[in-house]
Design a binder for these strands. Sequence first.
DNA 1: AAAATATAGACAGCTTGGTTGTCGATTGTC
DNA 2: GACAATCGACAACCAAGCTGTCTATATTTT
Lengths: 160, 160
Amino acid sequence: MSRSGADLALLLLGGFRVLADSATAELAERGYPDHRPVHDFAMRAIAAGADNASELGRRMSVTKQSAAKTIATLQERGYVAIGPDPEDARRKRLQVTDLGQQVLSTGEAIFDDLRAQWAQQIGETNLRALETHLQTLVGTEPMRFDTPGWVSRGTTPADG
Amino acid sequence: MSRSGADLALLLLGGFRVLADSATAELAERGYPDHRPVHDFAMRAIAAGADNASELGRRMSVTKQSAAKTIATLQERGYVAIGPDPEDARRKRLQVTDLGQQVLSTGEAIFDDLRAQWAQQIGETNLRALETHLQTLVGTEPMRFDTPGWVSRGTTPADG
DNA sequence: AAAATATAGACAGCTTGGTTGTCGATTGTC
DNA sequence: GACAATCGACAACCAAGCTGTCTATATTTT
């Protein structure tokens, strides 16, 4: 087996897509249609403290305008609520709604389920090793909630 | 360490992005600007026998219209040539040019280089194990040249 | 041979998720 | 009080997908 670097890249992407697609499909089946990974990660970031558009954009390595768009759709679906910020009149404070929390925990459960399936296939030990090594390779930080621009142009936006 | 399924997904995507971004950047530095992974995989597919738009679309799990767009940009850059098909007047036969071959082999070298760097970080044995396990999880097929839709809507297009 | 059907590629138009650039409103600092 | 920085909004654009429609050519069926 040749084991080229390109194969490795494809393998990683394939792995992600299998997980992401399965999760999206399952989420749709459980009553949350059109919920993409990006929505999930954005909500997680909001829940984790990125409670305004600019900050969310920063954490997701995306312009604030783009973040605002995501926020708008999340708001339309009732997953996040927008209110005024008592400390800064320019800001609009974001908050994950109860419905949003439901999606979040459902999504988490689904992902954990998928991971468990994988663990069953190759063994928990091997899966853990895979994760550990991948983490070493990707960087020390566990890539928290900042979704890395979603396979886009790679360069992080400057914005103003 | 919690090891949630979502973390795993992020890790996989992160890994892919690190490789893809590095490769894109390096390729740009060596004189092939704006060459994205999708171009590379499309060219590989063409070289591997997908010598018309419809077939390319099929292999990349993308509509033929979308494939046609990619082909158009590759042609503009002089990476593929379009000629008539002697056996079927509807078809336009695709061919990777010499310049295209250069990009291809350069890209391959870069990817292999990146893989070597990773091997140095966690050891060849571990990297091999990672690849093997990932392959088991993603599916038996090594995901050949069909780029899996590039983190899009997951559903494969029907088209006509 | 003719008719029905399938396929190749082109064109128009839409959607998603990004990007700049600009702007008014607000805040904080000198 | 003046001035720079920041927040969020708007407009315009782009890339890479999608669908739907169309013509020309092949292929298959009658």
